[in-house]
Simulated scan of single mutants.
Amino acid sequence: MWFKNLIIYRFSKPFELSADELEEKLNEKRFRSCGSQDMSSYGWVPPLGRHGYMLTHSANRFIMVCARKEEKILPASVINDVLNERIETIEQEQDRQVFSKEKKTLKDDVIMELLPKAFSKSQNTFAYIDAEAGWMVVDASSFKKAEDLTSCLRECLGSLPIINPALKNAPSAIMTQWLQQNPVTPAPFSLGFDCELREPSDDGGQISIKKQELITEEILAHLDAGMQVSKLALNWDDAQTFVLGDDMIIRKLKFTEVIEEKLDEINAETAAEQFDADFSVMTLSLRQLITDLVDALGGEAEE
């Protein structure tokens, strides 16, 4: 349940559904495993996993949801082997050539025949809604994965008025300034030891720096030559470490001993109580992190 990546969305209109109201709407797309002829399936599962049935989990006015994607594993090499064998048989037995249109039909037939025998894999994606602060946060490292979840949620709700945060400044410009000025990052942030530099052009080069001090003459020389910071490792308030991208995606998020100490103070007796405690501590901490990060980047642009 602990988020490892953050894609942050801003509600452009207040989210006014209660957890119970959201639960009712999510039931329309409760997850069902792939049928024998399905390549994939997508739907909502309980955030508590086997410890719960409800499709929403609410605490401190935060609402968590979880989507599951199941896909059949059908390698292209397997499909092509069966398809080529079938084409060869037709050409030999009927003494004719199989053209592209017929090959496509044969390929579709092969896929339908192989699907019931294929193994499947599944993956869960968690997200939570912070209606009070106006954020929706998805645990994903790519917009494609996040959009699968938000699209499914939009289908259930009829509309989902969310946008990527509109900032006054480009994150890459601010992160570049942080490495060029002294002092660097504003409190409560401090620099980590990883970053990525890129040239502004689409086909420009890039440099990846790992486990090194970032305020060096070499890095400053690259920045003075026009390169910009595209990824930067940061620490927040000694509670979390992460890598911030110029796309505003937070990756490699880790919670430190500070968070663990808060959890140690909670005496949870059941798995559900522990989940509730984890969820409360995590979301309250992330709300402050997001607030501080947006401020550090110069704030949100006015409408």
Rank of each mutant, 00 (worst) to 15 (best):
F3W: 07
K13V: 06
K13L: 05
P14Y: 00
P14R: 10
K25N: 04
R32D: 12
S33K: 14
S33Q: 11
Q37F: 15
G49P: 09
G49H: 08
R50Q: 14
H51S: 11
G52M: 03
T56E: 04
T56R: 03
M64F: 10
C66N: 03
A67F: 00
K69V: 13
P75D: 04
P75G: 10
E85I: 13
I87A: 07
E91S: 05
Q97Y: 07
F99L: 11
K103Y: 13
T105V: 15
L106P: 05
K107E: 08
K117N: 03
S120Q: 07
S120R: 03
K121E: 07
S122E: 04
Q123C: 15
N124S: 10
Y128P: 00
D130V: 12
A133I: 10
V137A: 05
D139F: 01
D139Y: 02
L157Y: 14
N169W: 15
S172W: 01
S172T: 08
T176N: 01
Q177W: 06
V184D: 04
A187H: 11
D194Q: 08
C195D: 04
E196I: 05
R198E: 12
P200L: 03
Q206N: 14
K211R: 13
E217T: 13
A221Q: 12
L223H: 03
M227V: 04
L232C: 08
D238H: 03
A239M: 06
A239S: 12
V243I: 15
L244C: 08
I250K: 02
D264W: 02
E269A: 12
D276E: 10
T283E: 06
L284G: 07
G298C: 10
G299H: 08
A301R: 07
